[in-house]
Amino acid sequence: MSQADLTIGHSTTQTLGPAFSIPTKKFAMWLFIIADTMTFAACLVVYGFLRNGTPNWPRPFHSITNVAIMTFILLTSSLTMLIGLRSARAGDKGAAFRWTMITAALGIVFAFLHIREWLELIDHGMTLLKNPWGTGLFGASFFSITGLHLTHVTCGIIALLVVGVRYKGGRYNADDIEVLGLYWHFVDLVWMFVVPLVYLLNLAH
């Protein structure tokens, strides 16, 4: 229906065409997401394994304001990403570019809030090795999981900027925005597990 079907393979009449009628790049992104799911899952399992096996695991978080705002921003950025994709599909290049940039901006705000939170925790004496509240494993797992997530967000922001600009320049098309969108939603999806497991379960009572 769109030129999506023709992106890979020089002509659909010569090859069987992509499996599941999904353009190859999109399929590859899904495969990456499956692999990345395992990477995050491994980290979360490590964290859960250690947390469960450690008596008196620290529960240092007092306020949920920051993490709530972060969650709100990331979820909203998924929505703006979708709007961007819809505009791109509708052929509204300007709007698609704008919404992609808005998504990137939201990502930047998220990263900013996240780093600010990190700095605060570091100020309180929390490092990878130790923290004032109990076992050092807390800092180690907190920083590695959120760090891995933050790395994904950062890569996502860069990708959004690059793809957005190149889309505007005509080098990329709506399909590329969709593929990138998959990644961005996935980063959001992971956050849905990080919040309850890493933040909310460690809330002081």
Binding site: I8, G17, P18, F27
Partner: peptide, 16 residues
């Protein structure tokens, strides 16, 4: 692996 899977599923010629 990413390349292998997509090659096998997506790039087969007609009849394959």
């Amino acid at each position: 692996s990413l390349n292998f899977i997509t090659t096998t599923l997506d790039l087969r010629v007609k009849g394959m």
